[in-house]
Amino acid sequence: MIAFIVRRLLQSIVVMLVVALLAFSMFRYIGDPINQMVGVETSSEERAELRERLGLNDPMLVQFGRFAADAARFDFGVSYQHKKPVSELFADRLPATLELAFLSAVFALACGIPMGVYTALRRDAWLSKVFLTVSLIGISLPTFLIGILLIFVFSVWLGWLPSFGRGETVDLGVWTTGLLTVSGWKAALMPSITLGLFQMTLIMRLVRSEMLEVLRTDYIKFARARGLSDRAVHFGHALKNTLVPVITITGLQLGSIIAFAIITETVFQWPGMGLLFLQAIQNVDIPIMAAYLILIAFFFVLINLIVDLLYYAVDPRLRVDRATSAGH
């Protein structure tokens, strides 16, 4: 167990180092950082002095070490475009993105699992066919199109929901939240559905196929033979065993949700990190791009690590397999 954790931790660190190297080379080789920081009228002596002061003449390895150390403290210098520290910009935007991601994950789970269970138990009901058709369309429609359709129906046509922004937010010191006001909830409704729809279809299909598989197994037949009620068989025995892969996929999808938030945030002008990143790409604002890359990589690696460890804790077979294979 400890060996497994240590190996996974080492792998995670290697991945982070590779990503940091990528971010560093973006930083160092795309355009000249000095040109981005100073005006046109700066003399070449001043430029050379600034270059020396910033350590751009040091050996590459030293520079990379410094970059990695700064990155570990999330210090990426000043944005070329906003002229503000990158960490400050991200601190402003992070709560908006995380709230959006959290709400869509909750939506995806709260709708996806019951829909999956229903379609598995009542395979031929018309509602199941509706769910499956909707899920096929949900996979085929690009995220941004779903967002635009929702805006068209609920903002333009019916005028019920706002089409952009976060609504009123409450400042809690380090965290600004939109979940304490009515307008915040109204503003969050469409973006979280847009973002969560794809994950919902994924979870629904996964739960459905896992349930169908589990319902065929011997222990379910045995449970029925013991005379347990349908309810106990379906929810106590079957559903419980389908949840292991669901946990894994949901966990891994959480990272994708944060990344796909770029699109949703653009459609709804949601003031999160994704919108910041997109503007940075359009303006070649390297410090923000590098910071976003490292932050997202960190989220991904962290989530992967947690999911792996959880899987290990939940599924005893994995432990046995590893123990026997280690014995060889």
């Binding site: 973006m26 795309i30 990344a259 070649v284």
Partner: peptide
């Protein structure tokens, strides 16, 4: 482990820079 759209965005951003 990263979504394709994110990688495409990054490559696009780097290409713009270059």
């Amino acid at each position: 482990s990263f979504p394709a759209i994110l990688i495409a965005l990054l490559i696009d951003g780097v290409a713009r820079g270059v």
